[in-house]
Design a protein around this nucleic acid. Structure first.
Lengths: 215, 215
DNA sequence: ACCGAACCGGACCGCTCGGTCATCTTAGGG
DNA sequence: CCCTAAGATGACCGAGCGGTCCGGTTCGGT
């Protein structure tokens, strides 16, 4: 659950500074993206630059620790939704949570979807995310809510795509991503009668060309 | 059409170097993204670093010149498709061309969709792209192919989203973006009978509740 | 052939970055 | 209370960047 990379130190000031550092890094990465300097994070945490490298061997290690936390959080959300009543709503809620995370964290959406040269632990967490997404998708698929050819990986990839589509609008309209989430959902779901202008023919009034033994 | 920012010089060696520079910059930006150094572009063009800044006042100016060319190319493609027979296919082809451009040019997909602090000429070109996309969309909308609430701006935004969705797969499977293009198209189009498991009832064999004077 | 202006090139500048290290501070067990 | 090992610090390093500048080169009109 708490996927810290390095071992947690023993001295009280060290554990306190580590917390300060993780909190400051999470906020700063979220606001400004992966390009922020270590110096800025250290300043925000109220510690020296050298302290950062005492706790994390490199900038990438620090970033990975933060990203891992976010990914695990999403995995937990998805896992909880596996027991929800309506598989369709569960999938929608999972995707909404995913896109929401991307919207509120700039570094998160910069890291995800760039599998090249990425921390192995982060890769593993993304795999876990794909697994839970696949479980949610399979449940919805079994009820003919989503197409048979849509996978959990599709769903995870779509999270980034939905966010990226809405990104230019988010400053002016922070909820714009919901528009494209619905669009994507319409793309992956099987069309239902509510999308057609008229209710569908349920049974033909007179002639039924095929045998209908059951009911 | 050819949206060069600075004036084209008069001396023969200068115009030759300018061409060399534009070609090298286009290739290098496409392959490595906007982060490539001016030095690398100059080296690839076979000129000195100073020559770059003689022709373009800054790196951003050079990048804008390249991006402007790509955007205008897409606008031309869209304009040509406005006279195509089938509005639905025209829209699909336009979107395919757009995503294809994003797939083959890393800088292009980094620049588009980041309207903040962007060259005004590039902004204008994006506006023109939205206009032609709106024209294409309106044509498809009029024939009930796409939803009434989908705009040209939606379509342009979706180009980036589709590419971004497929990006992690493109190295292994360069055509993967087509999957998500179809998905997006399914999201913005009005469901048609070909998506239902059986062909629709065309005319009821016997009872026709509404008058059918024509035939 | 000549000459001035346009052009070229790469050393150079100032800056920021991730990361290191010698020196100083402090927690906390005995 | 004291001593030591763990921890904190910020000056420092080398690399790389965009952009500048001036001495040398070349084009092209006359």
């Amino acid at each position: 659950m708490t996927g810290t990379t390095s071992a947690v130190p023993s001295r009280s000031d060290a554990v306190r500074n580590r917390r300060l550092l993780l909190d400051a890094a999470a906020k700063t990465f979220a606001e400004r993206g992966v390009e922020v300097s270590i110096g800025e994070i250290a300043q925000r945490a109220g510690v020296g630059k050298g302290t950062v490298f005492r706790h994390f061997s490199s900038k990438e290690e620090l970033l990975a620790a933060i990203m891992l936390g976010m990914l695990d959080e999403l995995v937990d959300t998805g896992t909880a939704l596996l027991t929800a009543d309506d598989p369709g709503s569960a999938l929608r809620e999972f995707m909404a949570a995913g896109v929401q995370s991307l919207v509120t964290d700039r570094a998160f959406c910069e890291v995800i979807g760039r599998p090249s040269l990425q921390h192995p632990e982060v890769r593993d967490a993304i795999d876990r995310l794909c697994d839970v997404a696949e479980a949610l998708t399979a449940r919805a698929r079994r009820q003919d809510i989503v197409r048979p050819d849509v996978t959990g990986t599709d769903v995870v990839l779509l999270l980034g795509g939905i966010h990226h589509t809405a990104a230019p609008l988010l400053i002016a309209e922070p909820q714009a991503w919901r528009r494209y989430l619905e669009l994507a959902l319409d793309g992956i779901t099987i069309p239902t009668e509510r999308r057609l202008p008229h209710p569908p023919p349920h049974r033909l009034p007179l002639t039924t060309p095929d045998p209908d033994p059951g009911r």
